[in-house]
Design a protein around this nucleic acid. Sequence first.
DNA 1: ATAATATAATTAAACGTTTAATCAACATAT
DNA 2: ATATGTTGATTAAACGTTTAATTATATTAT
Lengths: 343, 343
Amino acid sequence: MKQDIRLSEVARAARVSIATVSNVINDKGRVSTATERRVRRAIEQLGYAPNLLARILKTNQSRLIGLVIPTARPGRLQDNPFYWDLLAGIEEGARDRDFHIILAGIEEGDETFAFVKERQLDGLIYVGASEEGGAVERVLELGVPCVFVDSYLRDARLYQVCLDDRLGGLLATQHLLELGHRRIAVLPGDIAPERLHRNGVLQERWSGYRLALEEAGVGYDPRLFMRYPTSMEGGLQAAAWLREAGDVTAVFSFSDISAMGIVKGLRQEGLGVPADISVIGFDDLCLSGYMSPALTTVSQNIVQKGLAAIRLLVDQIEQEAGFSRKVVLPVELKVRETTGTPA
Amino acid sequence: MKQDIRLSEVARAARVSIATVSNVINDKGRVSTATERRVRRAIEQLGYAPNLLARILKTNQSRLIGLVIPTARPGRLQDNPFYWDLLAGIEEGARDRDFHIILAGIEEGDETFAFVKERQLDGLIYVGASEEGGAVERVLELGVPCVFVDSYLRDARLYQVCLDDRLGGLLATQHLLELGHRRIAVLPGDIAPERLHRNGVLQERWSGYRLALEEAGVGYDPRLFMRYPTSMEGGLQAAAWLREAGDVTAVFSFSDISAMGIVKGLRQEGLGVPADISVIGFDDLCLSGYMSPALTTVSQNIVQKGLAAIRLLVDQIEQEAGFSRKVVLPVELKVRETTGTPA
DNA sequence: ATAATATAATTAAACGTTTAATCAACATAT
DNA sequence: ATATGTTGATTAAACGTTTAATTATATTAT
């Protein structure tokens, strides 16, 4: 499909040079109103649409933003509905500001990010980057504007969007403590305690959990640290463990998706939620409020997170960057039906 | 960011012409092994990455695929987790075949699809296209390979991926009939009965429903046709209506997301599921099996749907199109906990 | 009337590739 | 020795824009 109408044809039709047509299109002025009208009519009649590639080649502005998301199992994006809401926000914001989103699932270890240079991307939104593996360094070397979402990178010069995760952890745990729980298990994800500090999001939520315990004068028992994948399946496994444990009366899962698995699992094991065990999650997925029983959780506005990320990035691209490089979005405790006083 | 290394610099370093370098890169042969080695080393040393834009400009092959998804409320992608799974499949397939996905939320009425020509997209995957509004015609005029997902367009020349929706409707309804239900309400979505034939997916599921009733000798009562949006909220409204109706013992919702709303709503209204009313959905979202009670539903493999769509499209782009233009994926009834015998 | 300036349009060179056409060098066949 | 063919490399034109430099024309100031 060779371009059917190009600048030169519009120029011929309007009896002007291609430079003039270009000037009209890009509002460069230097064109009389008479010819401008002639040109516009020609564009209209021929149904001309500019070839962005040629333009980008010349101007180096692709109006294309890469959305980088690490894949989970080899090659497939993680199956957490969380991402869809995030994407909805990002896409909406991009469209408003006349950018397009290109999706790039990557395998963090061996990704070279060649596509960024090849396609001349204007910027990158990197979700859940981890400081290990060198992927972040490789991204930064590209010299392309970048916003990191949920990444907690140490370098203060980086643009980042995250949540008040620690407060979230604090609120969740305080809520359980106030209900009278003392044996509160915690499920950060598929990660060992000693590696927790490598993952900012989990680390922060964890800090909140520990802080709340401390303030309440409740000792921390390392045996209450569970390690299962962040998925429905992981939640089921956690539930099985909880029944074995026996004395646990509440669980704080760091994500709704595994919290749902836990609720499901506990009920299958014949335990009542919240009668026997209280469950609290994190995220407030659009479904969480509609489960039966409805999930108590720490709520974040995921769509807003996406919007914030794209705004930060586009401002940066268009050199309108504000003072702040880090946006911290609020959390809110949503008490619903899966938490109650211990038996 | 002007391209740091270009073909000419590699050529200079290897002491050959740029044409030769190009030939090496594209494996065109006509290069002696000695110079080839020299060139490759130069590429390696300089860290050269080709500028795809320039290449595309010349070859008209962007290796870029547009994913077109109609937006719901002004400007925002619909909040149905369904799409994330679909996207995961599409993205995985695209990466395997060395394509990238560009996301395009559109407002079906006034979309001109200018971006397709502007960015020289190689192909389009259009999800849930409707025959009204002329959007499909406008897409076809572009002359770009296209695959329609869940669209049921009449034109047999079009490439389409869909589900055996009618069978799904049939199985769901038969299941309820076999349990002994006779007053079976149906919730296709926010659409009037007389406009149902405009929406292929709903129309087909509806046909299945009617067929099952007929085979069972159960008359169809138009009052059992509900009209509420395909969302949690819509489900809640449907639940309220169901309580008013009084004599309905089962509901068939054409999507899981509203089925979940119904279950939630009925329980709020003090009705038991399935004790008082059975509920069956459609989709089998990853969460559906984990709700309490777990949702009985017609299951489809959404990720596979995405993979099928991308395969069909890429085959078409690379002129390897097979004989069949239409892929119909199977459905499966998943009986779980929200259906039972009527009281 | 002439010079200086502002306005409107054109020319031509880039941007970084691919590729058809061409050429040089050499081997092989007559 | 000449014609023929093969192999390996180069040249130069194209892809569809933008834009700096330039020219032509009209306007204003002296």
